[in-house]
Amino acid sequence: DYEVGESVTVMDGPFATLPATISEVNAEQQKLKVLVSIFGRETPVELTFGQVSKI
């Protein structure tokens, strides 16, 4: 299970290999909103559970 505030690594898509912090969890739809730090700015990205891995 994923929790808000948890650190994960993006495994898929254009942000693969980047660390991210979970900002929202939708367990019903198996989706997460995460904040990816790009060029010093936090960018919100919506991903599925399968696109991230716990650190």
Rank of each mutant, 00 (worst) to 15 (best):
V4E: 05
E46K: 04
F39A: 14
E24P: 00
L35I: 15
E6P: 01
L35R: 07
L18S: 06
F49W: 09
L18W: 14
T17S: 13
P19D: 09
V45M: 09
V10R: 00
I22P: 00
P44G: 09
F39C: 15
V34T: 03
D1Q: 13
T21P: 02
E28G: 11
V36E: 02
L47I: 06
P44H: 14
T9R: 13
P44Y: 15
T9C: 13
N26F: 13
L32V: 10
P19S: 13
L18F: 14
E24V: 08
A20Q: 01
P44C: 14
I22E: 00
S37L: 12
D1I: 14
G13K: 02
V34E: 00
S23H: 10
D1E: 13
T43C: 12
T21R: 12
Y2V: 03
V45E: 04
E46W: 15
F15N: 03
Q29T: 13
G13M: 02
P44I: 15
D1Y: 15
L32Y: 04
T9V: 15
S53M: 10
K31F: 08
G40F: 04
E28R: 09
R41C: 14
V4T: 05
G50T: 12
T17D: 10
L35T: 09
K31L: 13
E24R: 06
T43S: 08
F49Q: 02
G5I: 01
V8A: 02
P14D: 08
I22D: 00
K31P: 01
D1M: 15
E3K: 14
P44A: 15
T9Q: 11
S53Y: 05
E24Y: 10
V36Q: 01
D12F: 13
G40W: 04
V36N: 01
E42G: 06
A16L: 05
V8P: 00
V8S: 00
E6H: 07
F15Q: 02
S7E: 14
T21C: 09
E6W: 07
K54R: 11
E3S: 12
T21K: 12
T43E: 14
T9L: 15
N26H: 11
E24S: 10
L47F: 06
V8K: 00
L35P: 01
G5W: 04
T21M: 10
P14C: 09
D12K: 08
G5A: 04
F15S: 02
L32Q: 00
S7Q: 14
A20V: 05
P44R: 10
T43Y: 15
Q51M: 07
F39Y: 09
D1T: 14
Q51D: 06
V36R: 00
D1R: 12
Q30C: 10
K54T: 05
A16S: 09
K54Y: 05
E24C: 09
S7K: 15
M11A: 07
G13V: 02
V36Y: 00
K31D: 02
K31S: 10
S53A: 13
D12S: 13
V8W: 01
A16D: 05
G50I: 10
R41Y: 12
V45C: 07
E42L: 14
A20S: 04
V25R: 02
V25H: 02
K54H: 07
E42C: 13
F49R: 03
A27C: 10
T17K: 11
K31Y: 09
S7D: 08
E28T: 10
Q29F: 11
V25C: 05
D1K: 13
I38S: 08
V25I: 12
E42N: 09
E42Q: 11
K33C: 09
S23F: 15
P14I: 10
E28H: 10
V8Y: 02
I22W: 00
G5V: 01
T43Q: 12
E24H: 10
G5S: 03
L47T: 03
Y2F: 14
V8R: 01
M11G: 04
T21Y: 09
L32C: 05
L18Y: 14
L47C: 05
V10H: 01
V34Q: 00
L35E: 04
S7H: 14
S53F: 05
P14S: 06
I22M: 01
E3L: 12
R41W: 12
R41I: 15
E42M: 12
V36G: 02
E3V: 14
P44F: 15
D1A: 13
S7N: 11
L35G: 03
E46T: 08
T48Q: 10
S53E: 12
K54N: 05
G50P: 06
A16P: 02
T17F: 12
S37T: 15
A27D: 09
E3M: 13
P14V: 08
E3P: 03
P19G: 09
V45H: 05
M11C: 11
V4F: 05
V34H: 00
K54V: 06
G40Q: 05
S53G: 09
T48L: 11
M11N: 11
V52T: 03
R41H: 13
R41K: 15
Y2G: 02
I55S: 11
G13Y: 02
T48E: 12
N26V: 07
M11Y: 04
Q51S: 06
G40A: 04
F39T: 09
E42D: 11
L18P: 00
V34P: 00
Q29H: 11
A16R: 11
K54M: 05
F15T: 02
A16C: 08
V10S: 01
T9A: 06
V10Y: 01
T9D: 04
G50W: 10
Y2I: 03
D1H: 14
V10C: 04
E3H: 14
K31R: 12
K31I: 12
L35Q: 06
V34W: 00
E46D: 09
E46I: 09
F49P: 03
T17C: 13
Q30L: 09
G40Y: 04
L18G: 03
V52H: 00
V4R: 06
T48Y: 11
S53Q: 13
S53I: 11
S7I: 15
Q51F: 03
S7P: 09
Y2E: 00
R41E: 14
P14G: 04
E24G: 07
M11D: 06
G5L: 03
E46P: 03
K33M: 10
E46R: 04
V8C: 05
G13S: 03
V10T: 02
M11K: 10
S7L: 15
A16G: 05
P19L: 14
T48G: 12
L47K: 02
I38Y: 12
I38A: 09
G13N: 02
G50E: 14
D12M: 09
G50V: 09
K54P: 07
V10L: 05
D1S: 14
D1F: 14
V8Q: 01
T9H: 08
T17V: 04
V36L: 10
Q29K: 11
Q51K: 04
T17W: 11
Q29S: 12
V8H: 01
E46C: 09
G13A: 02
D12L: 08
E6N: 07
V25L: 06
F39P: 08
A27H: 14
A27S: 12
Q29E: 14
V52D: 01
I55F: 08
K33I: 15
R41N: 13
V52G: 01
E24D: 08
T21I: 15
A20N: 01
G13R: 01
Q51A: 06
V4L: 07
L47D: 01
V52P: 00
R41A: 12
V52I: 07
F49G: 02
K33Y: 07
G13E: 02
V25E: 01
F49H: 03
F15D: 01
V34D: 01
P19Y: 10
Q51R: 03
N26P: 01
A27T: 12
P44E: 15
T9Y: 13
G50A: 14
V36D: 01
V36I: 14
A20D: 01
Q30Y: 06
S53V: 11
R41D: 11
Q30F: 07
V45L: 13
E28F: 09
I55W: 07
G50N: 12
Q51P: 01
R41P: 08
Q29R: 10
